[in-house]
Amino acid sequence: MADTVAQQPIRRKAADQSDRTDETVIEIKGLKKAFGNKEVLKNINLTLKRGENIVVLGRSGQGKSVTIQCIVGLLTPDEGSVKVFGQEVAELNNEQLKDLRTKVGFLFQSGALYDSMTVRENMEFALTRVLKIKDQAELDSRVMEVLEGVGLPEAADKMPSDLSGGMRKRVGLARTLIVKPEIMLYDEPTTGLDPITSREISELILEMQKKFKTSSIIITHDMDCARITSDRVVIMSEGEYVAEGTFDELQQSDNEFVKSYFLDTK
């Protein structure tokens, strides 16, 4: 019985979606991107509303990460439009891009912690350089607030090399959230973790989303993570989104390709 309860899927409840509005925070239209002769993104169209969580599913090498890298200006689209808060990302100058990036958090697959700095220094990096916070008391309180949020207050003075994979992801999440972004982009947040830690990270994403009222795009292969975190799921194939709907809608789909993603979830 206890096992059955533990296996009960945690879902994003309708009541948790009260912070959703119709305001569009990200709007992607006709996005195309090629590397050499390889056309990675052929025609991507996506709209993210404030407070919404979209999960992007797709096989490796389909261009899921490329899409979110275009959103933060790490890559420039070949064609199409990527608007964040109504601003065309490709047309922003350095200062505008910097301002935009303070509102958009990006959690990398590996956590991307700065390995020559302690966890605390990792946390303070953007605070002191981007938000220009110099008051040590404020820095300490913000660091401890996010570390307590991810359940790792004791890790503040550790080096990234002393942390496990799951802890690194948590610290990476904390480092991204410390600047209080309005949008979060997650690049495979549970990859490489055991099922229990994966579930903890997925629940943490949901918890942090509620706490910081962020909108999110989550790229994942982990169906458990998709189930827990998504309001809407899009499936990507050959550089295009081929299916879109809620987790339940797609789970019931008759399309063989879509069904193949949900084989183990029923």
Binding site: R101, A112, Y114, F125, R129, V130
Partner: peptide, 15 residues
């Protein structure tokens, strides 16, 4: 740092 996306992480943080 490039391989482990630390440089990208610095860039997207606005630093």
């Amino acid at each position: 740092m490039k391989v482990t996306e630390q440089i990208d992480a610095m860039e997207v943080s606005g630093a």
